[in-house]
Each structure stands twice: as C-alpha cells, then as structure tokens.
Simulated scan of single mutants.
Amino acid sequence: MLSLLGIVMVYSASADIGNQNGGSPTSYLVKQSLYVIMGLIIVGFMLAMNLEKLRHPTLLRWLSYLAIGSLAALLLVGKTVNGAAGWFHFGPISIQPAEFVKFYLIIWMANTITNRQDDLATEGWWTTMWQPIVTSALIVGLIFIQPDLGGAAINASIIVVLLFASGFNWKWATGIMSAGLLAIVVVIIPLLVKLSETRMAQGSYQLQRMVAFKNPFIHSQGVGQQLVNSYYALSNGGIFGVGWGNSIQKTGYLPEPNTDFIMAILAEELGLLVALGVIALLFLMITRIVLVGVRSNSTYYALVCYGAATYLTVQTFFNIGGVLGLLPITGVTFPFISYGGSSTWTLALVLGIVLNISARQKHYRATH
C-alpha cells in the first residue's frame, strides 16, 4: 500500500520537475515503478533464501570489503548531490552505497553478536566487542565525511541499538543515551548553528542547512527556502488537502519535492489525515517487526528484526523532523513514499529478510 501510494505521489510531485528540465512528466513515474517492481523481486528472493547463507564468514567478509571500499571510493569519484559526494552513476541509474550499508550493518552486527555470545558471558562486553565497534565506526565515519549526516546518524543508530541488545548493562546504556541526547540538544546543535552562521561565506551546504533550521524565515530567499515552503505546503493542505495533483509548492517553490520533502507535498494534496494515516501504517509495520523479533527463538533473528525496526524508525523520524522543522534537514528520504532506487531496494532487502524470519517462526510453531 505504501509503495503504491509512493508511486502515485512521486508522479504528482515530479511531473513539473520533468517539464522544467525539458523531459517527460512521467519520467520519474516510470523509474519509481521499475524500482518498486525490482524491489518486489528482491523481497521474493530474500523470502526464499536460506538465511544461513547470509551468515557465511566469506560472504560477510567480502561485503565488508565492498562497503568500506565503495564508501572510500566515493570520496574520490562520487558524484556530489546537495553537498554530499554519496552517489555512483551508472548510466541512468544512481547508486547510493550508504543506503545498502544499512542492510549490511544489520546482518553483520547481528551475526557478530550471535557468534560471540559465549565470549560476552566469559570475556566481558568491551573485550569481546571492541573490534566490531572500531570497524562500524570506520564505516559510519566514511559516510559522515561525504558529508552525509543523515545517513551516518541512521547507520550509527542501528549499531548502537544492536550493541545495547548484545547485553550491554542497561543502566550504562540508559545513562550514555541520555547524556548523548542531552549533549546533542544542548551543546552540539547550538554549536553547529553558531559555526554555521560564522562560516556562511564558505558556502558549505551542510552548514547552510543548520542556519535554515534555526531561522528559516529570516533566510526565506536563500538557505531557508526549503523549510519555509514546506511550512507553506503543510498550511495550505490543512486537514483534508487541496486535492491530488493540485499542490502549489511542487511547481518550483519547494526543492526536492519528490524525495526529501515528498511528505510535505502529500500533506498539501491529501491533507493531514492521510499523512497521519501513512505514518500510522509505517509504525504498525515497525511494531510488527519488533514483535517478530521478540517472539523469535533465535538471537540472530531477533537482532536482525531490532536492527530493521531501528532503521525504519530513525529514518522516518529524521525525515518528518526535517519537514516539520523539528530537526535540521539531513537529506533523508521517507520510507516507501520518496523517489529513489537505492532506498527502495534497501527497504526490500530488509523487509525480505524479516518476512523470511516471520515465515520460519510460523513453520516452527506449526511443527512443534
């Protein structure tokens, strides 16, 4: 349902972009439809796969080389979009490695923790986990310096949640998370905003986004344009919307209407009630994924589900936070609704493995 709605909204949000670029108004519609069809094939493949093959050491080792190598190569040959060198271009297709890294980190970290359960009990948490922590920190660091703050934060969240689920003392975990959130809100964000205001002349896209987060209307003709026009779209849509295809902001006022800010266009055209319904459906899916993990009789399966739920939750939170001005704009897509092949295929990989785990649980309960 969400993917079908996403195709419809991508068409509505991108038709004007196609016309303005001298292309076809249906170009993004065709591409997104193909991405979703390919995604369904990936889901079917993952559902039929023997999950033990994903845990093979050789496969995980080569996936690790591929993840680190591709992220490092981006710094040299990656195409810069919106201030971040995060894409490889292969003809008409663009690949964003940071998206696929989310899936890799979920299966790799889940497998690592599962294989080291005995060591966690005998050797201690830090002694057992310091090597995976260093490796994952390297991967997140390579994403951060693109710079892709949103991608780095989502990948880091997946790692942190899985590390806490590995048996890290819950009192320490609660304290560290609370201190981290407090530091982000009270210290880091204000410092970044202040730094942004003093370095605007350098033209850093990421710093400009911080300025727009603090004072969007003061900079409404420049760096605050995106957030201000997001507000206009939300206000214009009201509770019931102006009707599908009737958005004003998508006609050249709101940048990235088919990707980062597609929820603003959805809210403008279909209204607050539909937007809340989309979020409710997504969080129903997340809740079900968590329940699949809780009910699992396998540590590996449970950790994969927790990682998948974290990925969807944090990505949704970042996107909606940016659209509403509650968080700095991070260039994060909204799951299933936004245009994009890499994000669609990563979602397909993650949901495919969760469906596989759910099917195995049902078979186990039916035969025991």
Rank of each mutant, 00 (worst) to 15 (best):
L76V: 11
Y306S: 01
L142A: 08
Q96P: 00
V101Q: 06
V10R: 01
A84H: 04
P97K: 10
L347Q: 09
P92R: 08
G331Y: 13
L149W: 11
F45R: 12
L40Y: 05
L272S: 12
Y231V: 01
S296I: 00
M9W: 13
Y65T: 06
W87V: 10
V36R: 01
G91V: 15
P328A: 05
G91R: 09
G293D: 06
A156I: 08
Y339L: 09
A137N: 03
A121M: 15
L303W: 13
P147F: 11
A110D: 08
F213M: 02
F100L: 14
L71S: 09
L5E: 00
M109Q: 15
G175A: 01
I286K: 09
Q225Y: 14
T330V: 08
M285D: 07
S235P: 08
N19A: 09
A280D: 05
A280V: 15
T344V: 07
I188Y: 03
G203N: 00
T251P: 01
I353Q: 10
S196G: 15
M49S: 09
T344Q: 12
V43T: 01
Q249K: 07
T287P: 01
T316G: 12
S166L: 06
Q206E: 13
I154Q: 01
I184E: 10
L34K: 05
M129E: 04
T80R: 08
Y311T: 08
A15M: 10
R360H: 08
Y339D: 02
G238A: 12
L273R: 02
I93C: 12
Q117T: 05
G124W: 01
Q225A: 03
T198P: 10
R199K: 14
F88E: 10
V36Q: 02
L207T: 05
A201H: 12
L66D: 05
T287K: 04
A302P: 02
Y301G: 13
V8W: 05
I353K: 10
T198Q: 14
I188K: 03
G39W: 00
L349C: 11
D118K: 11
G243V: 12
I106A: 07
V290S: 06
A165S: 12
Q20K: 07
M285H: 13
E256G: 02
V242N: 13
A73P: 00
T316I: 10
I113L: 10
V81Q: 14
W87Y: 04
K171M: 07
P335V: 15
L105F: 02
G78H: 15
G237M: 11
A156Y: 15
V354I: 00
L291M: 08
G340T: 06
R360Q: 15
I68W: 07
N21L: 14
W345S: 13
L227H: 00
P57C: 04
T198G: 07
L4T: 01
Y306C: 02
D16G: 05
A359D: 10
N115Q: 09
G307S: 03
A275W: 07
I279L: 15
F283K: 05
V161T: 08
Y339F: 09
N356C: 04
A201N: 11
G237T: 07
N111Q: 06
T135E: 11
G237H: 15
G341H: 05
Q361S: 10
L291S: 12
G224Q: 03
N82D: 11
L54F: 03
F336H: 02
T313H: 04
L74Y: 13
S64D: 09
L273I: 15
Q221H: 13
Q249M: 14
